[in-house]
Every structure is written in C-alpha cells, then in structure tokens.
Design a protein around this nucleic acid. Structure first.
Ligand code: FES
Ligand code: FES
Lengths: 160, 160
DNA sequence: ATAATCCGGATAATTATTATCCGGTTTAAT
DNA sequence: ATTAAACCGGATAATAATTATCCGGATTAT
C-alpha cells in the first residue's frame, strides 16, 4: 500500500500556482516540465484538482491554471482526497460476520472500527496543514534564496 | 491507495489461531476455507506471519499453524507490518529539492515531514490494539453465543 | 480564420497484487 | 522403510490498479 505519486506532484503543483501573481496563469506543460511528470497524465491530475474546486482552468490560447481558493483554505487533505478519492484505506469485508453467521443488525466488525479510527488519525494530520503553512515553511530563511530563484522562474513562465 | 486484503485476512486468521488450546494446530486449508481466501495465496500470508515470529508452523503430517506469542504481545500493527512490509505510505521523491536545486545538506522536504507524522499517527492506533484486546471485544456479551459455536468448530477441525 | 490551450473519453503500458503450480523437506502412521 | 499429509519457497501466471498516451472537440487571444 502506497500513496499515489500523483498526490505529491499535485501538492508541489499547487505550491507553484501559489507563487503566481493575481490574474496570471501557468501552462500545464510548463508545470509538469518543472516537476518532472508525464505531461499528459499530469493534466489528468490537474483536472481532478479543478473538479475539487481547488484550482481554476482557463481555456484557449494564453490559457492555463491558477488557484481558485486562498492558500489558507487549501488543506493538504483536500489535495489528497481530490487525487485519491474518498474511499477509505480499509474496506471491511466483514469476514468475521460471515464466520460468526451474524444477522445484519448484529454486525460487529471490531477491526473495521479500529481501522477507521486509524485513518481518521492520519487524515487529521493532513487536515492540519494548508498550502499557506507549507509555503511559509518553504520560504523560511534557510531556503529563501532558492525560493527567490523559483519565483523568478514562475514570473518568466507565467502567462498574462 | 488501499490496504491489502491480506492484512484483514491475516488478522482474522490470528484471531482463529488464538482460540486453539495449547499444543493444538490448525491446517492452513482449514483456515483459508473458513475465511474464504485462496488457499495457495493464503499460505504465503501465513509464511509472512511465521517470518515475523508471530505464529509457528509445524511441518509434516498433523502439521499446521499456531500462535508463537501470547495474544497480548501481538499487535495489529505487527500483523500489518508482516504483510505490508515496513516501507512507508509515502516515499518522498524530493521534487522540491530538485526544483530548488538544493544541495544534499540543504534538503527540505517539508511535505515528507508532514506525511511521516501522519503515518506515525495512523500506526499509533494499530499499535495500541492487540489480538488479546480484539478477542475480548469479539467475545463480548453481544457475540458470545456465536463465538461459542466458532470455538466448537475450531476444536472439531484442529489437529493433535 | 488560426493557433494554442484546456477537455474528456478511449486505450495502452506499466506496476502491484493476488493466485497457481511444482518439486523439496519434514513428520506421523503403518 | 514406506507412505501420505503437511509445510517451504521459488517460478510463474492472472488480475487489478496506476500511470501514460492519443485524438477529436470546445474555447479564446491574436
Ligand atoms: S466482521 Fe470484521 S471484526 Fe467483525
Ligand atoms: S522536496 Fe519535498 S518538501 Fe522539500
């Protein structure tokens, strides 16, 4: 069991979009090039982020993508769900219910309860952090010099 | 991203083995039959549990499997690791390090830190519960009648 | 009108998971 | 000793999930 790499790539993509000045937009191939992802598949990921209302797409020449929400309102969890879907890590098959021949209103699934709690606990951490708080960490003193370079790159490659 | 069904099946298998009286053993096909798993693949799972020192196998005629540790010492987490391996849910590819052109001793991976924390949080829940505590819940008043049937079944199908 | 972009459906390639097979070793019973 | 029933582990196949590509259609700045 491993998280899709698409989640990681999406987070970085949103982090890049967060560096855009207002009204500006980034072409999908420019982003995938920077991130090192396959351009066509990466566009599918961007679509999922659009469907989740995290980013906006503008079609046509000079089109591209930009954030739809404020970075404070985009949680890492939102990106995770947008890409992975909201099905849980564990889907109880209720083996023990079969084995114990339990009727419907008698179900136990003790294990299911535990797994659900574990998952909530994992999600809670992803809900805590937002794009804004991640960006803040990345812009810390230690990296500020490099981030400046990156922002310059964004300005050179953005559109409108 | 979804947990292998093998983890769930293994937990139930260990729960069954926990119902065995001392010295007794359960044949792998008997277990997989009860759980509804493919016999050959299920044996691979049992092997992993053996490698993880959670259960013991006795070869030869009248052979089978039984617990190696006390049920209080088998955490759901141990079973999870035995089946899934200990690689983490998220393996940071360090995209941002590339993008920022960071040198080795300058790495950030802010996202990696967050994911690691989330995973620890998930694991903590699985570490809390043991086979003993699960069994206790299953043997609660509500299910005690059915569990008695199941134990009868175990006694009829165990060996030696 | 044209070219550049997003859109979305179909499809293929790759990888991970689940399942099977088979020859080997161990052991209880005859 | 011989046999039969079980575990062992390596090779391999089948299935499912993920990643990647392609192509025709819709939208928009020039
Ligand atoms: S069926 Fe899963 S614990 Fe009861
Ligand atoms: S490379 Fe992953 S957050 Fe820095």
């Amino acid at each position: 069991m491993q998280m899709k790499t698409g989640v990681e790539q999406s987070v970085y993509a949103v982090l890049l979009l967060n560096m855009l000045p207002d009204k500006a937009v980034l072409h999908s191939e420019v982003i995938s090039g920077q991130i090192g992802a396959s351009p066509t598949y990466f566009q599918k990921l961007l679509r999922k982020l659009v469907s989740a209302d995290l980013i906006t797409s503008v079609p046509g020449v000079k089109g591209g993508f930009k954030l739809k929400k404020d970075p404070e309102d985009i949680r890492v969890y939102d990106i995770y769900v947008a890409i992975e879907g909201q099905q849980s890590l564990y889907s109880p098959s209720g083996i023990l219910n079969d084995v114990l021949e339990l009727e419907y209103d008698d179900r136990c699934c003790v294990l299911g309860g535990l797994m659900e709690e574990a998952e909530e606990s994992w999600k809670a951490v992803l809900k805590r952090e937002t794009i804004a708080s991640l960006a803040e960490q990345v812009e810390s003193d230690r990296f500020v010099h490099h981030v400046t370079d990156l922002k310059k790159w964004v300005e050179e490659n953005m559109v409108v």
